[in-house]
Nucleic acid binder design. Sequence first.
DNA 1: ATTAATATTAAGTATCACTCAAATAAGATC
DNA 2: GATCTTATTTGAGTGATACTTAATATTAAT
Lengths: 247, 247
Amino acid sequence: MNSKEKNKSRTRLEQRESDIVEAATQLFAKEGFHGSSTRKIAAAAGVSEGTLFHYFSTKNVLLLAILDDFYQDLISSAQVGVQDIMGTRERLLFLAKNHLRSLMDNHALMMRLIQVYLSVDVNYYLDYKSSPLHDLNLRYTRIFDNVVREGMERGYIKQELELSAIRDLFFGGLEYGMRTLKGRNYSGNKVEAYVEALIDPLWLSMQQSAATPAANQSIDDRIEGTRLEETCERLEKVASRLERAAK
Amino acid sequence: MNSKEKNKSRTRLEQRESDIVEAATQLFAKEGFHGSSTRKIAAAAGVSEGTLFHYFSTKNVLLLAILDDFYQDLISSAQVGVQDIMGTRERLLFLAKNHLRSLMDNHALMMRLIQVYLSVDVNYYLDYKSSPLHDLNLRYTRIFDNVVREGMERGYIKQELELSAIRDLFFGGLEYGMRTLKGRNYSGNKVEAYVEALIDPLWLSMQQSAATPAANQSIDDRIEGTRLEETCERLEKVASRLERAAK
DNA sequence: ATTAATATTAAGTATCACTCAAATAAGATC
DNA sequence: GATCTTATTTGAGTGATACTTAATATTAAT
């Protein structure tokens, strides 16, 4: 047996596996998790039901495989994007847009699946931390955490932030924002605008100068401070635009 | 038939109904939605399976009834609380704490059910807006909206806010925050502290930034040196970014 | 007491996720 | 290339599930 044959046989098995995964992905997206029976999935993949269970011991395992693929894409696209962007604010905006686009366009109804999986998952992994999905989610959110930490080190962001609170607002806000956008049937640049409306308040509260609206400071000082603040923001936005244009 | 008898018979039916709802609520909380079969629920309520389906045409309808009860409590407790509190910030803090407490303590694993229901629900009501749960959610979030709007009118909060974005951050942040808290096994005052860590950034970004800028004095006279220094640093960073981008 | 309406039940049914023993194909050895 | 061994594929099962139904029991009204 030469390596080519070995490859061939390996790809044959992998082909079957990906056939099943693709059929399941399409069906889940179209008819939901509970609406797609293993029989229908097997038929769509061109295999018998027994074969399906030979490759995936459980319908939930199959779901997990799909979610795994999805998270891998999400993670790598986020990592690559963050590398190519300099400013902290621009990085956060990119992460937010990438997150929304991945969930809304690319995989259509994947968010359904995450919810289904979480609700099913919890029954098996009573402790979130032992769930396989938790690991993926952790790897993903760590990208966000690193962006924020680097922003702190560079002085763009105040140090006293409660990182986990900001993270919860970021991802929670995005998830709810997605529902809002779906309800409005928004797409394209409307999405971008809404992402900025979501991130702007967070960014505002993260910034260094807004850090300590010190109690001993007079109101007037604060007023002028915010005016300077606005100027800085404008300049930073211009800088980000130039960075984008330069690429 | 006098009205008392009529009442009696009505309460007998209502008794059955609430027996079923209570049994289902307990079982769902203990073993999850998919782990609680209609047979087990009927047995726990002391009725036959057929009777259960006489009162609730579907297992999902039963779930919806439970969620309805939950939302009614949530809505009324929120309304009462907001009435008794004056300040906008305190109102928001109350809403957040009330939200978290209701979901974490009072109804234990109710959040599971909401997720399950959403994931199941979407298959029937492809448009969110026609979902019965959507109505309840709308009534609930309207309380938040009114608090924010009143804060705007009173001048506590700036007018240019994108309300829906703030709402998404608020409720989305709370939902993710709840998971964070559960992961840390926090309770009591730790919850209160985390709620403040979640709301503070939002509140900061909501506040009236420029009330009545005093026009008769120059900016330079009013700004402290340290603040100016900080701002200069930031501007210099932006400048160097611009230089880099220009290359 | 009788009747009409409703509540309750137990025995179904179709479908579901999943199993298993047998059939088939592939890989390795001679 | 024939044979043995291993891995893959299959379709007919299995118990559990949500839900139905037709018959029975209970109630409300005259």
